[in-house]
Each structure stands twice: as structure tokens, then as C-alpha cells.
Simulated assay, not measured.
Amino acid sequence: MARVKEDYRSLTGPQKAAMFMLSLNEEHSSKLFGMLGDDEIKELSQIMASLGTVSSNLVERVFVEFADALSSTGSLTGSFDTTERLLMKSLDKDRVNSIMEEIRGPAGRTMWDKLGNVSEQVLANYLKNEYPQTVAVVLAKIKPDHASRVLAILPENFAMEVIMRMLRMEAVQKEVLDGVEKTLRTEFMTNLARTQRRDSHELMADIFNNLDRNTENRFMSALEERNRESAEKIKALMFTFDDLTRIDAAGIQVLLRSVEKDKLAIALKGGADAVKELFFKNMSERAGKMLREDMEALGPVRLRDVDQAQAAIVVMAKELAASGQIVISEGREEDELVY
């Protein structure tokens, strides 16, 4: 167990307050905790939990400074367990659990914390095959903003079943919660870790797609000098604004309904002629005329703004392709369309 510095002068005010609280009996400490706000309790609890072993000399110096005539209390051990036990004497269980989860940090992350880093699409794909009651328990445990995004992706009828169960749900028994958590850990998180291993070239292609044009060109040129084979693989995997020509007419019309018109005007301002022609060809004459007028009214546009607008449209195209609303051909001969 670590010991705090023996030099009393080096102790901070919060460290002295933590020693003081650990030295008091439960009756007095509970009264003091009841007068503190949540932020103060969290700060003090964090220090108490990491305090380690405190010598009796330091404890006595603290009480002398507080002008309190107390005798030596002996050595103290500040740990997560002792802090949690002390908090439980003065605060309700939910509040204590919330405080302890926060101060434990990454080392004490729960399954529910880990689910917060799982994308809503991946989580929804897993949960849609579970019982609505199980899904209700999971959504009640993760953060509301994350839960809302998962709920929006679930099939509508199934989502309503989940909502109804969440509305009727009372306190979940610990055994049930432990069972759900165990299932998530053994089935979902294990499979997720296994399937998330990606080809390094695919990963770099995604990263390069999100670079601005100048940075991308600089890195790609440097990579070509060092490893031309890898550079070519990344280029083949990248999907850029110019690659929108690989989408058929029906797909472009779906994309047109999904993108923001002001972003489209900026993106096409710096786009290749082939891409401009593709979009205008799939718009009505009136809509095309309005878009051209918008582009002319923009005047000179910064390259950075063009890159951002094009990147947003590329992301939208990928999302539509992933959901099956549009098809992006691979550019091979067998993918060519016959009219």
C-alpha cells in the first residue's frame, strides 16, 4: 500500500480534508457528507480512495491544524473499499454507486461503461435478436443519449415493445442484472473483439479518407516512396468524392434527397466535371438551374471548405450503401450497368 508524503508541508488542502474525514467516526462524517455537494463528494472521495497508508504523526498534525484536541488515531488506510463503506453510511446506495464508478476510472469500468464505446448500429444489431425485456434492461443501464440512438435503429414494433417494458420496469433484481451482464460479456463483447480486427490497409484507407486534400496528398506521396504496394492498396480501398461516379442514377437521386443543398453546392464547386455532370443529369432542369446559381453566388471557396463538404457527402453515400439504399459498384467490368 502506498504511503502519502511524510513532509506535512507538501500536503494539499484536499489531502488533509480526506485524512480528517477518514479519522472521524461514522456519525460525524455522515453529517459532514450530507452538507457537501456531489462535486465536492466526488473530489474528496477520489482523494480518500487513493490516499494509501497515512502515519499517525500526519493524522495528529492534521487535527492540530484544525485546532481539534484529538489524540492520535493510529494509521489509516484509504482505499476504494473503505471509502465506499464510509459513503454508504451517509448516502443512498444509488448515489454511492454513481460516485464510486466515476472515481474508479478506467480500471473500474463496468460492462455498461464499455457498451458506451460500442456504436449504436452494432449494439442495435445484437439487441434486436434478444428478448424485449433484456433490451429494456440494457437500455436502462446505458447513457440516455446512447440508448435513444439504439432505440431509433431497432425495428419499430420491437422498439415499441422495449419502450412498454421500460415504462413498466421496476427495480431490476441483482441476479437478473448479473445474468444480463454475464451474457453481454461472454457473447457480445467477446464476438465484438473478434470481429473488430480489421485489415491495416482498410483502416488506413478510412483514415486517409478523412484527411484534407493537401495532407492526404503529402502522406500518399511519402508512402509511395517507401512502400508503393501499400500505397496502391490504400488507394484502391479509398472512396473519394470523385468515386461517386460509381453510383447509378437511382442511387444518385437517393443521395440528392439526403444531402444538404448548401453542402452540395460547395462540394461540386471543387468537384471534377464528371461528378458535376452526374449530379446535374439526375436533377430536374429547375433544380439544376437553382444549384448552378447557388454555386455561382458562392464566389471563391476555400479548399478546406470544399474538402469538408465533399467528405460529408462521401460519408452519407457510405451510410446509404451500408443500409442497402444505394449500391456502389467496385469499378470492375462485371459491375458495369447495362441499359
Rank of each mutant, 00 (worst) to 15 (best):
A67N: 15
A67W: 06
D68H: 14
A69Y: 13
S71F: 12
S72Q: 14
S72D: 15
T73V: 14
S75R: 15
L76R: 13
T77Y: 15
T77K: 15
G78T: 06
S79F: 09
S79K: 05
D81H: 12
T83G: 10
T83N: 07
E84L: 04
E84P: 07
E84I: 04
E84W: 08
R85F: 12
L86I: 12
L86H: 05
L87K: 02
L87C: 04
L87S: 03
L87T: 04
M88V: 08
M88I: 08
M88E: 14
M88Y: 06
K89W: 04
L91W: 02
L91H: 02
L91M: 09
L91N: 03
K93G: 00
K93E: 11
D94M: 03
D94I: 01
R95D: 08
R95I: 08
N97T: 06
N97R: 07
N97A: 10
S98P: 04
S98V: 00
M100G: 00
M100T: 02
E101W: 00
I103D: 01
R104V: 01
R104K: 10
G105K: 00
G105W: 01
G105V: 00
G105F: 02
A107E: 10
G108T: 01
G108C: 02
R109P: 03
R109S: 13
T110Q: 05
T110E: 05
T110D: 05
M111G: 09
W112V: 03
L115M: 06
L115R: 03
G116H: 05
G116R: 09
G116T: 09
N117R: 13
V118P: 10
V118I: 14
S119D: 14
E120M: 06
E120D: 13
E120S: 14
E120Q: 11
Q121R: 14
Q121C: 01
A124S: 13
N125L: 12
N125F: 10
N125W: 05
N125P: 05
